[in-house]
Design a protein around this nucleic acid. Structure first.
Lengths: 185, 185
DNA sequence: TCACACATGTAACACGTTACATGATTTG
DNA sequence: CAAATCATGTAACGTGTTACATGTGTGA
């Protein structure tokens, strides 16, 4: 039941349509949770019928109508209770790691290609996060922001995302070096 | 369909019973994939009926009988094909990150407690991985191991696990510092 | 004109979690 | 004597993925 709280947390940034949320939760962008559009539409329907969000139909001229969602008081309360309960440990589930684990009987060239693709993705995400961080800081120093900003949550999750991608880069680079030196010999 | 390949990859280390695999895939130990015992028993049954693993019944005197699983040739082939296909991007899904994202409206003390718990867990996992690494190296230098070892896969995934936990430690520490300085003021 | 962005959804299936059930043996 | 370990499983439910369906407007 964490997707629902991730959606509520995303709506703290302001009202949004399912489509807009889908963009925020896209794997290639998400820095705190990822989900597909289908999951979001399903979850938004449930959240609405549970009274945790409110939908407002916005008619558009040259676009299909859209439903824009806002947190209700019950939604805020529910999110608060979620933050008070212990989080469960995250599970490690990354296909690339499985491929590496099996690389000795597998196709080492293909695994190396995948590592390079992951490296590219990590660089792209890191660049994106750096831009988001600049927007967030808006001229202030990190230190000043950490003391003065009204909302610190999104900043801390962004920091987490940056560190995670930096580690990804170091890991892929190291693994590629080991693999390619073994392929040469 | 990645659990199945994770199981096949685990069986590269040698035959194992469902129970033994369950220990290897436990969240608090797993360095390349995690799964619950129930998932494993279900998946092993399927793998067996698909002919990718073979079960052998081992009768025990003072213990319940156990089924010990081995890779078949078809299983090895299947695993090889998996390593040749591109891995899909991993999805970020960690409840603690959601809690942090919502910390401004949430219970900051509870989130801080969770961060401390995560920090402890990360230290424990790192210690475990360090011990596994020592066992793996068995006296050799990292450099020598990387050149000479027969299997490099488990070494590279272990490296990944270590880097990941180190990052976890740095992130939790930094987040705790920011949060606690804001709580004081 | 073709692809992409906007905007929402259904259906079917695969995967993951939780609770429950059983029962012997070893360790503290 | 109680708790942990060994060893396997069923049932029910919740979450995540994939394929498909629909239709307009904008930019290259």
């Amino acid at each position: 039941m964490a997707l629902r709280h991730a959606v509520l947390a995303a709506l703290l940034e302001g009202e949004a349509s399912g489509y807009q949320l889908a963009k925020r939760f896209d794997v290639s962008v998400a820095n705190f949770w990822s989900a597909t559009p289908q999951q979001l539409y399903r979850e938004l329907d449930r959240l609405e019928s549970d009274g945790l969000v409110q939908a407002r139909l916005v008619r558009q001229r040259r676009r299909p109508d859209k439903r824009v969602f806002t947190l209700t008081d019950a939604g805020r309360e529910n999110l608060h209770r979620f933050t008070a309960a212990p989080a469960r440990p995250p599970a490690m589930r990354d296909e690339l790691v499985v491929k590496l684990q099996a690389v000795d009987l597998g196709d080492a060239d293909a695994v190396a290609k995948d590592l390079m693709a992951r490296l590219d993705r990590a660089h792209a995400k890191l660049d994106l996060y750096d831009r988001l961080l600049e927007d967030m800081l808006d001229g202030r120093s990190a230190d000043a922001y950490e003391r003065e900003a009204e909302r610190i949550g999104p900043y801390l999750t962004l920091m987490g995302g940056r560190m995670y991608e930096q580690t990804n880069i170091r890991w892929c680079t190291a693994a590629l070096e080991v693999l390619s030196s073994r392929l040469r010999s």
